[in-house]
Amino acid sequence: MPRKIRVLVAKPGLDGHDRGAKVVANALKDAGMEVIYTGLHQTPEMIAESAVQEDVDVVGLSILSGAHMTMFPRVMQLLREKGAEHIIVFGGGIVPVEDVKKLEDSGVSKIFGPGTDTRDIVKYINSVFSE
C-alpha cells in the first residue's frame, strides 16, 4: 500500500485570518491526504516540532500578515536542525512577487498567491510525490 501523503497546515505568527488555510486543508483532505491542521498563532518552533512528531511529508504555511520573510526561513532552519530537511515547505498568502522569488530560491518549494485554484495545489503536491 502506498503511504498516504501527510500535510501539516499552519498559520504562523499573529495574523488571525484562517479562511484560506482552512480551504486548503479541506481541499487536501478531499484529495485523499491526511491533513494536520494546527490552527492560529503558531510559533515556528511549534510548527517545526509538530511537523517532526507527525512525520509529515509537506508543511503548508499561510501568511497574510507580511511576516513571510521572517517566518518561512525560520521554519526551514528549524526543520533542518531537527533533521527534517526532507519535508517540503510550501506557502500561501499575500507575498509580493520579488519576495516569492527570494523565498523559492531559499528552498521554499512553492508560493501560491491569492486566487489560486485549490486543484492546482493538489496537483502540485501529488506531482512532487509521484516522481
Binding site: A25, E34, T43, E49
Partner: peptide, 15 residues
C-alpha cells in the same frame, strides 16, 4: 483523506 484537528486544542504542548 482526513482532517486531523486535535492539535489545535493542545498547542503549547509541542514546546
Amino acid at each position: 483523506g482526513a482532517l486531523l484537528g486535535d492539535r489545535i486544542r493542545m498547542q503549547s504542548l509541542s514546546e
